[in-house]
Amino acid sequence: MSWLVLVLSGFLETVWAAALGASKGFSKLLPSVTFGVALLLSMGGLAFALREIPLGTGYAVWVGIGAIGTAIYGMVSLGDPVSAARISCLVLIVAGVVGLKLLH
C-alpha cells in the first residue's frame, strides 16, 4: 500500500508543479488552489509512505516520479524542447526509480 501511495504522491508532484507554473506567481485563482491542494495531498502521501519505506528511497522515488512527469508535461503541453539527450536522461531517472524499488 505504501508504494502505491508513494507513486500517486509522485504524480501529484507533477500536478502541483504544473499548477505552480500556470498560477503565474499565484495571480490566477484556479491554478493556485490546484497547486495548494495537490501539494498537501502529495506531501501527505509522501509522509504516509515514509512510515514503511526508508526516507532516502521514498524521497528519491517521489522526486524522480515528479521530475519525470513534469518534464514530460512540459514537452507535451508547453513546447519544451524534445531531444534524444533529454529523453535519455529521463530514461536514466526511470531506471534509478525502478532500481530503488527493486532493491528495497
Rank of each mutant, 00 (worst) to 15 (best):
G64C: 11
F35P: 02
E13R: 12
F26E: 05
S27W: 00
I93Y: 04
M43R: 01
F26D: 04
G21Y: 07
G69H: 07
Y73K: 01
S32A: 14
T57H: 05
L29T: 12
G58F: 14
F26N: 08
M75S: 12
K28L: 13
S88A: 15
H104R: 07
Y73R: 01
V33C: 06
I53L: 06
V91C: 04
G25H: 12
V82L: 15
F26V: 08
L46P: 00
L30E: 06
L6Y: 10
S23A: 13
L30G: 01
L102C: 07
I93D: 00
M75Q: 13
L29H: 00
Y73D: 01
G25T: 10
M1P: 04
G99W: 13
F11D: 00
V61H: 10
E13Y: 07
S77I: 06
L46W: 03
G45H: 08
I53C: 04
G45S: 05
L30T: 12
Y73V: 01
D80F: 08
S9D: 08
G36M: 15
A38G: 07
A71S: 15
A85Y: 11
A71N: 13
G74P: 02
L39K: 07
G74I: 02
F35Q: 09
P54E: 12
H104A: 14
V15L: 14
L6S: 08
V97D: 03
M1R: 11
V94R: 03
